[in-house]
Design a protein around this nucleic acid. Structure first.
Ligand code: ZN
Ligand code: ZN
Ligand code: ZN
Ligand code: ZN
Lengths: 168, 168
DNA sequence: GACCTTCCGTTACACGATATCATGACGGTC
DNA sequence: GACCGTCATGATATCGTGTAACGGAAGGTC
């Protein structure tokens, strides 16, 4: 597997406590850098999202927290999600109404990523798509359309699943 | 306004019975060409979608049909929508969970359209985006990702609304 | 007619998201 | 300490989107 493929699609379930702790720490730094509060609830919600490379729905997060003894209302999950989105540590998959943790802390280079979502294992990868967003902007200009929000999402098979390595 | 802009973004409300009848007729031809049945329900659902240039949700269609005396269950609306999607006479906007009528009967040239959705008036336009989809395909190949379904959607202001001509 | 396939009606439910109002925690100010 | 503004959270209810399962109706085919 090439480097870019490995980076974009690590194993979907490697929960690895150490890696997760590292991700939480980086998320905390992002919050601090933006003068946002990384509260207990936000951290718990983030941990559920970051514990998997797959995308996860709000109610799935709710259920997992409930299993661990933390029972909260849907609205609380969504408020936490909003904060995480604002901090830029998670992304929303429009085509699935679900969320996943950002694995690339380099968005502020200004280059936008495009999302690759595996239909078999659920893993979501991000690859650079700046040139594509540029082209979309040009197409909009050509139509006299004032573009504000653009999203590009691709569904298919990740390298692992395409090779038959995904969970059956 | 340029030609391309006018074509992509006609007035969102020009319901014009004659134009609608023409659209229904063309939709019927599409169904026939694909050996699908353009049933009464499908035609009614199509008429509600095609009666506006804006996108419309399934339950909004449901409500409008109910107002006209036709009361059906959500599942029936969705089944009709599935058939209309399969016939290619409507499209789905993933970012809004809504549907709109296709105004370009030239997709089978093989060139895929790009959806431009106005945040103010709701109108949805289509412009050629084949080169963009090609580029996305290349990006996926670079990540060893086997792409199957690609979504590209843009939200912003249509030419009319950007110029202050949309309904306030 | 009998047969088969597709479409539709009904019921019930799962999942996604928001409105509204109330409570609590924290920091600053007087 | 008492007051106040802001933000985060809690509680309840409701709305919006989408599907499963089953049975019956409609339409083509022989
Ligand atoms: Zn990211
Ligand atoms: Zn996979
Ligand atoms: Zn179209
Ligand atoms: Zn508009």
């Amino acid at each position: 597997m090439s480097d870019v493929a490995r980076i974009a699609f690590p194993p979907p379930d490697k929960t690895n406590g150490k890696r997760l702790a590292k991700a939480v720490e980086r998320a905390g730094e992002e919050f601090a850098a933006k003068n946002l509060r990384f509260t207990k609830l936000r951290q718990m919600v983030y941990e559920e999202i970051a514990a998997t490379y797959a995308s996860i729905g709000a109610y799935e997060i709710l259920a997992r927290l409930a299993d661990k003894g933390t029972r909260v209302a849907p609205i609380s999950i969504y408020r936490a999600i909003d904060a995480l989105l604002e901090a830029g540590v998670i992304h929303r998959l429009e085509s699935k109404n679900a969320f996943f943790a950002c694995r690339r802390m380099d968005h502020r280079t200004g280059r936008r990523p495009l999302f690759l979502s595996c239909e078999k294992c659920g893993a979501v990868g991000e690859v650079d798509g700046q040139h594509i967003f540029d082209l979309i902007g040009e197409a909009a200009v050509g139509a006299k359309f004032q573009a504000r929000v653009k999203f590009v999402e691709v569904q298919g098979l990740c390298p692992r699943c395409a090779a038959g390595g995904g969970k059956e």
